[in-house]
Write a protein that binds this DNA or RNA. Structure first.
Lengths: 115, 115
DNA sequence: TGGGGTACTTACTCGGAGGTGAGCGTGCAG
DNA sequence: CTGCACGCTCACCTCCGAGTAAGTACCCCA
């Protein structure tokens, strides 16, 4: 493995970033989402600032397509590109694995804590 | 998706943490590693402090097995548990995907930057 | 008349992630 | 006899990820 800051590691950090993980999972259903609908779906745990920033990074990497309808009030839609779907699928697989194994992990944590 | 801090999200953050991603990938080859060998493999980009902290978190989650040989000088070995192998395999898959698609991503970034 | 929704941007602030350097207690190589 | 390797831990400090609040420009509904 090549480690010193290479493009691959940067891309990995974008995908596995705190908010990137969540955004990619929501978008992975294939639909297209408006900014505030996306935020509501994430139960407002992410601030507007960080959501914008995260979406910009993912857009720059070619994972997210941003479509602006120049109307007032503003209307913007976000969706995964084919490239984004590839990345997101791995994240979704990991998320499913975690969901399935969460009890086992929690048990391991309890074991570790009382010892 | 359930979002407000649930055990699943915490586990996801451990696995996708900055150093967790790298450690799990190195350990994923199945072998067992000594502390400083692991650090050298990561080309010293991670400090001793953060490596210890990351390994502790992964151990608590039941992903990493830590075996201490009580000799002087100290001898400690780290290896993935079966549970850890499950998690790491998804990370490795993602890493391979990134490696394969890195040129396309870099191209997207260049396109984004000159516009 | 004014309050809320839309999709942001900017400025200010703060906590915590993370780096640095030292210390430890011994065995072994030089 | 010196000094390094090992696998940490602790104290200190820095910097950046992230939150909060306010502003924007316009429309619609009450």
């Amino acid at each position: 493995m090549q480690v010193t800051m290479c493009p691959e590691r940067a891309i990995m950090e974008h995908i596995t970033s705190k908010w990137g993980v969540l955004v990619l999972q929501v978008l992975s259903d294939g639909g297209s989402w408006r900014f505030s609908a996306l935020r509501r779906e994430l139960e407002d745990v992410v601030s507007e600032k960080m959501l914008t920033q995260t979406l910009r990074t993912l857009e720059r990497d070619g994972f997210v397509h941003r479509e602006v309808h120049p109307v007032i009030p503003p209307h913007v839609e976000y969706a995964l590109t084919p490239l984004g779907k590839g990345a997101a699928s791995h994240l979704v697989a990991l998320a499913h694995w975690i969901e399935a194994n969460q009890p086992e992990v929690s048990q391991a944590q309890r074991r570790y804590d009382n010892s």
